[in-house]
Design a binder for these strands. Structure first.
Length: 593
DNA sequence: CTTCAATGTCATTCC
DNA sequence: AAGGAATGACATTGA
């Protein structure tokens, strides 16, 4: 049921879906139809339903708050004529979420400026400085943020998050173009390792300035900021930090990349504070819900993602984001990496979250992070990073609080993204198109699907295992319905693929065999023809010799008067006894008769 | 943008 | 009956 609901939502939301997506949905649908109800599956479904209900409640709550914030912001607009940033502590999250329209004008200006700055600086690669510098130098990002206090969150986000720019700009006249260019520029800038390092250092500095009570917390906070590769991890850590800070929950040790994450510009800090505040303000569950809802989430995501986007160019993050986003707003992507960030939180979760529950985070994460590795051994997958950016940041707060390091628990929700979209969008943002394409090329559709649903088996395993082993594998690993359906479809398609290959191979072999037969027959024909010609020529020669011999014999014959005998008047005939008679031709017939 | 070959997928039938 | 092979027809993809 949930699947169907999700599917419908997706359809409504995404009209731009690729055929691949449609296919994927079909697969899901097929899976849903199939009746595979293990006891565990039913339990999962029940849990999913409850979670969905809870999420719904949360969503409503968020919407209310957003509306409130929106109203407040609107007032601000009237006063200033522009969107005036509200210093209010509550504003950050709410404003970030809903205010897009209001803030747009101010943002657009700032955004354009940022774009220009980027355009100017980008070619030289000096742009690194801008993001790195927390202060005035923060370049475009900072400037944008500075433009309006209330708009900060939005503005900040816009540059960082690909999707945001489009959203914010859309109302404005220039919007999309700028957003696209900006996104690309940002992506490239972020991708620069140097810049990341600088950012990380700045982040550290800023953190020190902020003087967070717990040193541990600092790293987590950094994690919040979306770094390309690090961003997700950072997010997770940040979430953890927030939780720990608020709820005094044990902080989770920051992910590997925390140090890198650290660097953030001053504007980022502002965002961060807002984010942290929001996270603290909203329970983790709320955050998750928000992810489920594109609109609501966007605001928060924007704030979060802005920073993250700046830093994060890692394909994995974008990948996941792309997945999530795909469900929400297909249009937004528009090929820009930036778009992915906002999406990540909202849609994907609701759609696929249910499915993913069975799997541990580690598995899921591995899947996400290693798009290309999907085919590779699962062992590799698992060994790989467990810091799934998307998952952590999405699920994060509640989960982290309760279980600091148990990432596995909630990741599934994040997974939701659809396979096809995932591969395409996610890879693009960080790495350049080439990488995306190459990685995409690597993964087959089924591999992408399996990856999307966090299926802990390789496609080869699913396809090639004997029936008994396959069933055993399925029984040992509790998969949700969607996963089971997908696994079956993968197996079916895999088998059929091999069958088709064999069939074509056989066809080709048959064709080759027929061609060979044809050649041999042609050769035989030629041989027989030549033999026939030889025989004919021999026969002709024998006839000629016989005729000459005949005439020779006649030439030696004489009649009684000694005259030569004409062959036209007589013919020679040999009796069975061997004696030869000279028979007149006229008489001859006469005699015979 | 079109064409074409290779390949994947689906539906169906048969074993 | 289930699973899979075989195969025609169509879709997708990349050159």
């Amino acid at each position: 049921m949930s699947m169907m609901m999700e599917m419908e939502a997706m359809h409504s939301g995404q009209q731009n879906m690729d055929l691949i997506d449609i296919l994927w949905r079909q697969d899901i649908d097929l899976g849903a139809r199939r009746e595979v109800f293990d006891y565990s599956h039913r339990q999962k479904e029940y849990e999913l339903q409850r979670q969905q209900e809870l999420e719904e409640e949360k969503r409503l709550h968020l919407l209310r708050e957003k509306e409130k914030a929106l109203l407040a912001q609107l007032q601000l607009d009237e006063e200033t004529g522009e969107y005036v940033p509200r210093p209010l502590p509550t504003a950050p999250l709410q404003s970030a979420a809903t205010p897009l329209e209001i803030t747009q004008d101010a943002e657009t200006l700032s955004f354009d400026e940022c774009l220009q700055l980027l355009a100017e600086t980008f070619p030289v690669e000096e742009t690194e400085d801008a993001p790195v510098r927390p202060d005035a130098t923060a370049a475009a990002s900072t400037d944008c943020s500075s433009s309006s206090s209330s708009s900060r969150s939005v503005v900040m986000m816009s540059p960082e998050q690909p999707s945001l720019p489009s959203l914010t700009l859309s109302p404005a006249p220039q919007p999309q173009r700028m957003s696209l260019d900006m996104e690309q520029a940002w992506m490239e800038l972020l991708s620069l390792p140097e810049l990341q390092q600088c950012l990380s250092q700045q982040m550290e500095d800023t953190l020190e300035i902020a003087s967070y009570p717990v040193a541990e917390a600092q790293e987590p906070n950094y994690t919040f900021y979306p770094m390309p590769s690090l961003a997700d991890k950072e997010k997770n850590t940040l979430n953890d930090f927030i939780h720990t800070f608020d709820g005094s929950v044990p902080t989770v040790p920051p992910p590997d990349n925390l140090s890198q994450i650290k660097a953030e510009a001053p504007p980022l800090n502002t965002n961060f504070s807002l984010n942290s505040f929001g996270s603290s303000f909203y329970p983790a569950a709320m955050l998750e819900e928000s992810a489920g809802q594109p609109d609501v989430e966007r605001e928060e995501c924007n704030i979060m993602s802005d920073v993250q986007n700046l830093y994060s160019l890692s394909p994995g993050d974008t990948f996941e984001r792309g997945r999530h986003t795909s469900s929400e707003v297909p249009d937004v992507d528009s090929g820009l990496s930036s778009s992915t960030s906002p999406r990540t939180f909202s849609p994907g979760k609701s759609l696929y979250g249910d499915e993913g529950f069975g799997y541990s985070d580690s598995d899921l994460e591995d899947m996400d992070q290693n798009p290309g590795s999907a085919e590779s051994d699962y062992s590799e997958m698992f060994s790989l990073n467990f810091q799934p950016d998307d998952v952590q940041h999405v699920v994060p707060l509640s989960m982290l609080v309760g279980q600091p390091q148990n990432q596995k628990v909630k990741l599934p929700k994040l997974e939701k993204m659809e396979p096809a979209e995932e591969s395409g969008h996610s890879s693009a943002p960080f790495t350049k198109d080439k990488r995306k394409r190459s990685s995409d090329v690597r993964l087959s559709r089924d591999e992408q699907r399996a990856k999307a649903l966090k299926i802990p088996f390789t496609v080869d395993m699913i396809t090639n295992l004997p029936v008994d082993d396959f069933n055993e594998l399925m029984s040992k690993n509790q998969l949700n319905e969607a996963q089971l359906a997908l696994v079956r479809d993968i197996r079916r398609r895999g088998k059929n693929k091999v069958a088709a290959q064999n069939c074509r191979k056989r066809k080709m072999e048959n064709i080759v065999g027929l061609e060979q037969d044809l050649d041999s027959l042609k050769e035989e024909k030629e041989r027989l023809l030549s033999e026939k010609l030889r025989n004919m020529s021999g026969l002709r020669e024998m006839k000629r010799q016989l005729n000459s011999l005949y005439l020779e014999v006649f030439g030696m014959l004489r009649d009684e008067s000694g005259n030569a005998i004409s062959p036209s008047d007589f013919s020679l005939q040999q009796s069975s006894e061997g004696s030869v008679f000279l028979v007149p031709r006229t008489k001859k017939t006469f005699i015979k008769s």
